[in-house]
Amino acid sequence: MNRAPRPTDLALNRTGIYLSPTDGPAMVEGAREAPSSPGCTRALAEVRRQYAGEVGVIGHMPAPASLQVVENAGAAVLRRHRVHLLLDKLGERLAFERTGVRLFDALIAKLEAQGSWDRGPSLATLAQFRAEEAHHFALLQDVLINLGADPTAVTPSADLAGVELAGIVQVVSDPRTTLPQALHAHLVAELVDSASWELLVDLADDFGESSLAHKLREPLAHELRHRDTITTWLKRHAALVAGGALKYGA
C-alpha cells in the first residue's frame, strides 16, 4: 500500500449533525415545529401494492436457438417450465461469471497500484481466480449451446444479476477505493456466486441431468474457494490492523 492518507485516518467528514453545533439544533427545532404532511404512512405501501397488481414482469425467456430444448423437454408442460427455469439460471450464472472476470480485472489493477499486505491477495492468485471465472463463463456458454439455447440472450435472472452487481462494479472500479474496500464489495459477489452455483448443481440433479450436474461441480468448488480465500484475506487484514502492524484500517 503506497497511498496516503487512508480512509480510516481522521479528517473532516461533514455528514454528521453533531458537526454543526448551531445549524444542527436549528434543523431539529425547525422540523419539530413544522407540521408533517397529512396522510397515513400506509399510503406508500398501498401504491406499491396497487402497482404490483397491475404491472407485468421484467421480461421473459427467449425462444430457443434450436428445437433441441423443446425436443429434450418433451411434451409435458411441467417439464418445459423446469427447462426454462434451468436455462434462466444458467443464463444468470453466465452473466455473473462474465462480470466476475471484469471485477477481477479491476481488482488486479487496484492491487498493482496499491500493493497488498502480509498473506493478503497476490497478483498470481487474483489472476488465477480471474482465469477460473473466464473458464466458468466459457463452460456455461458450451452448456447453453448444447442445450439449444442462445448464450448471448439476456434471461430475466441474468438481467437482475446485472442490477445486483452494479453497486459492486461501482465500488471496485472507483480509483478512490482501497483494495480492502474493493475486496469487501467483491466478497458480496462471491457469497452470492457460491450459493448460486450450489443452487444450480441441485437444480441439475433434480432435473435428472447428472452429467450436467457433474460439469457444474468444478466451478462450484472454485467459487467456494474464492469466497473462503477473500474472507481469509479480509480477516488477516483486520487482524494486522488490530495488532498495529498496518497503519490503515480500510
Binding site: 449533525i17 431539529v28 397515513c40 406508500l44
Partner: peptide, 12 residues
Amino acid sequence: SETVAADYRWSP
C-alpha cells in the same frame, strides 16, 4: 408527493 411524505417528519 403526498403519498411519499404522509405523516413524515424529518429526524436526525
